[in-house]
Write a protein that binds this DNA or RNA. Structure first.
Length: 271
DNA sequence: AACTTGATCAACCGCCTGAGA
DNA sequence: GTCTCAGGCGGTTGATCAAGT
């Protein structure tokens, strides 16, 4: 049916923001707070799309933003979070105070991808690049990713599904979404089906009860046990899912990474 | 010094979801 | 139940800068 444009494009500026525009935006938000982005540009005297204002504020002007280099610890945290969440940059950014999704996304694409490749790890699957698949490594190194690491079939590409209700059945793993055929993981990776049942991420994530993680032999990597599945289920993301003191979450303490632990939902139970 | 190539990152675009009419 | 709107997200683009030749 088509949609009206978010703003009158004929009368909006595009491209880099000027200092004056920044000052106007900052002054307006300081005075009136965030929100109502659509009407903000006019109210603030900016010839910008509301979306553009929001993006500028969120990604660059917000006072709580942390600028500067990522630490090694940040790197590792991003990698772990990406392994669990896939390209859910906003969720990942939520674990890194002062960082924006855009910044993390860029950092991933420019630094971490290469870092993982240099370690022989596929940045999309977080699994070792098999030595025999030189083409896979080459494709990955060139920015492409492959969909078929050994024993890791990818689902056929599908249009981005509707965002699932946050139901977390006991065996659902918080694993990164499997790559699509073309290797471009998208937000569509957020499926409601259990993902990567055979994926041993070996993330050393702090996981809490009910599991005390047994050291699993490497051979177990592709043959998950129910214990492993239970363990993975224990990773709690409820904080990010907006359930900060929700009934579904019984966790009391946060892990160093900020995770809490989730009681598996009963069948049909939703957060 | 001039040019080319690659890396970085701010910003845009299209799509989706949830709320409200 | 349907439609519209606003906000939000992830993917992609393009301008800019640095390094290399």
């Amino acid at each position: 049916m088509g949609r009206s444009p978010c703003c009158e494009k004929a009368h909006t500026n595009k491209g880099a923001w000027t200092k004056e525009e920044d000052q106007r935006l900052i002054a307006y938000i300081k005075a009136h707070g965030e929100g109502c982005w659509r009407s903000l540009p006019k109210a603030a005297g900016l010839l910008r799309c509301g979306k553009s204002c929001r993006l500028r504020w969120m990604n660059y002007l917000r006072p709580d933003l942390k600028r500067g280099n990522f630490t090694d610890g940040d790197d590792e945290l991003i990698i772990k979070l990406h392994a669990m969440l896939g390209n859910k940059w906003s969720l990942i950014a939520g674990q890194l105070p002062g960082r924006t999704d855009n910044e993390i996304k860029n950092y991933w694409n420019t630094h971490i991808k290469r870092k993982l490749l240099s370690r022989g790890i596929d940045p999309q699957t977080h699994r070792p690049l098999s030595s025999g698949t030189g083409s896979a490594a080459a494709a990955a190194a060139s920015g492409l990713t492959t969909s078929s690491t050994a024993g890791f079939p990818s689902p056929s590409p599908a249009p981005r599904p509707a965002r699932p209700a946050i139901a977390i059945p006991p065996n659902v793993m918080f694993a990164r979404p499997a790559p699509s055929e073309d290797g471009h993981s998208s937000s569509g990776g957020s499926t409601d089906a259990p993902r990567c049942p055979d994926l041993n991420l070996d993330l050393d994530l702090s996981v809490g009860p009910p599991c005390s993680p047994p050291k699993t032999p490497p051979a177990a990597a592709s043959t998950p046990t129910s214990q492993q599945q239970q363990r993975t289920t224990a990773i709690c993301l409820c904080y990010h899912l907006g359930v900060r003191s929700g009934e579904a979450c019984s966790c009391k303490t946060a892990s160093p990474a900020g995770f809490r632990f989730l009681r598996p939902l009963e069948e049909g139970q939703y957060i």
